[in-house]
Computed example of a mutant assay.
Amino acid sequence: MHEMSLCESIVQIIEDQARAQQFSKVRRVVLDIGALSSVDVGALRFCFDVVAAHGVAQGAALDIHTSPAQAWCMPCATRVDVTRRADPCPLCGNHQVVVEGGDAMRIKELEVD
């Protein structure tokens, strides 16, 4: 389960920012997770509560937004959204698409005191 190590990294970033920006409590964490990131959202929620239990993010609400993956369709010469790496272009059905993103996860917003 790599969600535990992801949560440990998230909480470490939050703790580092709490020291740098001098806040003492995190009320809400907003994450943006790409559709191709292979993150189990349920496991991530559970792990976040466990890892954040004794720090500035203890009890923080976790809002998770999933962003679509994007690919460049060579025949259409346009950027399209895809849900899997092997998806064809939703416009022309061609499989000559190059996935350009959608596997990242980032902290998008923190609501702090």
Rank of each mutant, 00 (worst) to 15 (best):
W72T: 07
K108M: 11
R79V: 08
F48N: 06
D87F: 05
V80Y: 02
R27L: 11
V50T: 13
V30I: 10
C7R: 04
F23E: 06
A18Y: 00
G59R: 00
V99M: 00
V30W: 05
G59V: 01
V11L: 10
V50P: 08
G102Q: 12
K108T: 11
I13T: 12
M74T: 12
C47W: 11
L36T: 10
V51R: 13
S38W: 09
Q17M: 15
G102P: 13
S38C: 12
T78N: 00
V112D: 01
F46M: 05
I33R: 03
E8H: 05
H54P: 05
Q21A: 08
A53K: 14
G55Y: 05
S67M: 15
A86I: 06
C47H: 12
Q22P: 01
R106W: 15
Q12M: 09
D40F: 13
E8V: 12
L36N: 05
A20G: 11
L31F: 09
L110D: 02
V50F: 06
A69H: 00
S67G: 14
G34M: 10
K25W: 03
V26R: 00
E8L: 14
A71I: 08
I64W: 11
F46P: 01
A35W: 07
C89M: 10
S9V: 09
D103I: 02
S9R: 13
P88Y: 01
Q22F: 11
A35H: 12
H2G: 12
V99N: 00
D16Q: 14
L62E: 13
D113F: 07
P88E: 05
L62W: 02
A77V: 09
K108R: 15
A57V: 11
I13R: 14
T83H: 11
V97A: 01
S9W: 07
E109V: 07
H2M: 10
K25G: 06
G59K: 06
D16W: 01
I33S: 03
E100M: 10
Q58E: 12
D103M: 05
E109G: 00
A57N: 02
C89K: 02
E3L: 12
P90L: 07
H65R: 15
F48H: 06
C92L: 04
D32M: 15
V56L: 01
N94S: 13
L110G: 04
G93K: 10
R79I: 05
D103L: 04
G93F: 03
I10R: 13
E111T: 15
D63P: 03
C92T: 03
H54G: 06
D16H: 11
A77G: 00
D32P: 03
V56D: 00
V30F: 02
T78Q: 08
Q58I: 07
P90G: 10
D87K: 01
P75A: 04
I10P: 10
I14C: 02
H65D: 09
G102I: 14
D40Q: 09
D32H: 15
L36P: 14
M1V: 08
V39E: 13
I33K: 02
Q96G: 10
V112E: 01
L44Q: 06
V82C: 03
